[in-house]
Every structure is written in structure tokens, then in C-alpha cells.
Design a protein around this nucleic acid. Structure first.
Lengths: 154, 154
DNA sequence: GCCGCCCATGAAATAATCTCTCATCTTTGT
DNA sequence: ACAAAGATGAGAGATTATTTCATGGGCGGC
């Protein structure tokens, strides 16, 4: 078996993406191979990094993080040091789910989860605009989560 | 035990969020309770919806989805029917990871995973601008994923 | 075409883990 | 302080993961 994924591997990956709690026996039957083979395949998918991790997806509203906010950020200067400083600082902020350097009208796009708008307002004033090199931010409150964190299609 | 989460529940939730493959015995030891109690706690967290699902996080680059794009969308009309039609259509598009109705300069924000820029360009021309009621889109190619899908902080 | 090597496969045995039962203990309300 | 309700841990039994081993299929060399 070379480095690529065959039909069976893809099936296992897709099944585990939709439900990481399948027993090996169930996986095996659905994928159409024996339990032993399925187990080896799955282990290989982990070992070779196809599955980065398995995560319990905690329901945000259940733990008081029901509000989602997208934030566009523009920095003062477009120097490597400026970018690096911003990125170092953002990594400390636990409420930041996504932070991406983008091409376009903004330098960075953030996806942030907080309890509510008031919560965000405080965070915005105390932490976001205080980040190193931030010239301006544009906030987009999410009014409805149509699709959030859909599984990867491959 | 009432409807709220105590210190043990939170610990279990956080552990499972970081690694959904802990054995119950390991979870129990780390959380500081017996295996039986840990098992019951965990099952309750599932039953009561604190854990929406357990998902294997597939490495995007490993399955040919290494390119990330953020897209802002503006619709022609701001009517409920227009929004509904757009949302119905977007749910069919498997490459859309996030789709959020936002307040601000855009109506919707999309997070999309594709193979590469060429791939996106085709999809943009063939599928995105063809979505019902779309007046304009603004594309932000992600040049660097600083933080992607960080675990929830609670 | 034939042979030999390599590697993947499945059945079965073993080891580990989960899941439930029960007696005990803690908490809560009166 | 007492009774009821619920949570807990130890252990038994059931389930599941993981390894071992013999077999079969594909591929290259001759």
C-alpha cells in the first residue's frame, strides 16, 4: 500500500469525520473490511497525519458562548515584524477561534466566540483594539449561524 | 446533581474537546473520579447535548483541500424570501464550511475550502455568483492560517 | 510463462476496556 | 436530627481493541 488513500481509506475517514465514536467493528462492517484490517487502516490514518485529532464538539450555547462575531482587522504597517507581533498576541486570546491573514481590504479576519454582545463589546475595547499595530477593526455580528463548522468534503 | 456543570464536568468536557480518544479510565484518573462515575458523567454530557458530536478532524492539505477562502456576500434584496432561498441553496454546497448571516457591510460571510485558487475561481464563477439573489461577492484569499478552528474556551 | 518475494488480508486468541449492579456514602429538605 | 433522593466507588460480566499467524494476491525478475 503506497502513500495514497484508496476507496476504503476514504470511507473510513469520512465515517470518522461524521462520528468519531464508531466502534472498530462497526467501522469495519460499514467500510466492508475485516475488523483487523480496519483497525490497521485507521491506525495508519492517525500515524500518517490524515487525522489531525479527534475532538468532542462542545455545544457553544450550552457553555455560555452563544454569540459569534466576525472581525476584520487592518494593521498600521505592513511589515513582517508588525504581522509577527500581531500573530503572537492573537494566539494568546482564547476566544479567537479563527485568525487568518488575508488578501484584500483587511489584513486579518477573526472569528470570535463570546457570551453575548456586551461581552464582545468589553473584549473589543479592552483586548482587540489593544493588540499590537491595529489601525482599525470592522465588526460583523453574526445574527444567524446558517452553517457552522461543516465537515470537510473530500 | 442539578442541570448545571460542576468542576468535574467541565474538566471532562475540556479533556474530551482536546482529545476525543481518551479511554474512560484515563479520563477518570485525570478528572479525579472513579471510572464508573466518569462514565456516567460523560454519558450525561452526551445525553444532555453538551457534546454535540465527536469528530475526527481531517487534515485539509492531506485530502487536497489546502486552500481557504473567505467570501463576503451581498444580496439583491433584503427580504425574508431572498434570505431563505440563499440559505437553502448554500446548504447544498459541500465546500462551504461556514455561512453566517451578519450585520454590517455584507449580508453573509462564507468560509470555503478548496484545492487551490484555480479551483476556487471555477467554483466562484460556476456556483457562487449563480446562487439565488446574489448581487456581489468579495473574496478574501487566506494567505496564512494563523489559527484555524481553535477549541472552545469555556 | 513461471517462480519467488512482499505485503495486505481475515480468523482467531489475547489483552484491554467499557458498562452495569449493588452496597455505601453524601447531600437536601423538613 | 431524620428520611428521602441522588451520587459514588469497587467489582463482575459483557464488549471491544489489538496482536498473532497462516493464507492469498499482485508484481518484478528471469
Amino acid at each position: 500500500m503506497g502513500g495514497r488513500l484508496d476507496r476504503i481509506d476514504l470511507k473510513i475517514l469520512r465515517l470518522l469525520q461524521n462520528n468519531g465514536r464508531w466502534t472498530n467493528a462497526e467501522l469495519a462492517e460499514t467500510a466492508g473490511v475485516s475488523a483487523a484490517t480496519c483497525h490497521r487502516r485507521t491506525q495508519r490514518l492517525f500515524d500518517e497525519g490524515y487525522i489531525a485529532q479527534v475532538r468532542a464538539m462542545v455545544a457553544p450555547r450550552k457553555v455560555g458562548k452563544g454569540a459569534l462575531v466576525m472581525v476584520g482587522v487592518v494593521l498600521d504597517r505592513s511589515t513582517p515584524e508588525s504581522f509577527a507581533a500581531f500573530e503572537r498576541a492573537i494566539a494568546q486570546l482564547k476566544f479567537v477561534l479563527d485568525c487568518h491573514l488575508v488578501a484584500g481590504d483587511f489584513d486579518y479576519f477573526l472569528k470570535i466566540r463570546v457570551g453575548d454582545m456586551e461581552d464582545f463589546n468589553r473584549i473589543h475595547g479592552e483586548q482587540l483594539i489593544a493588540l499590537p499595530g491595529v489601525r482599525q477593526t470592522r465588526t460583523f455580528f453574526v445574527m444567524k449561524e446558517v452553517v457552522d463548522n461543516a465537515p470537510l468534503d473530500f
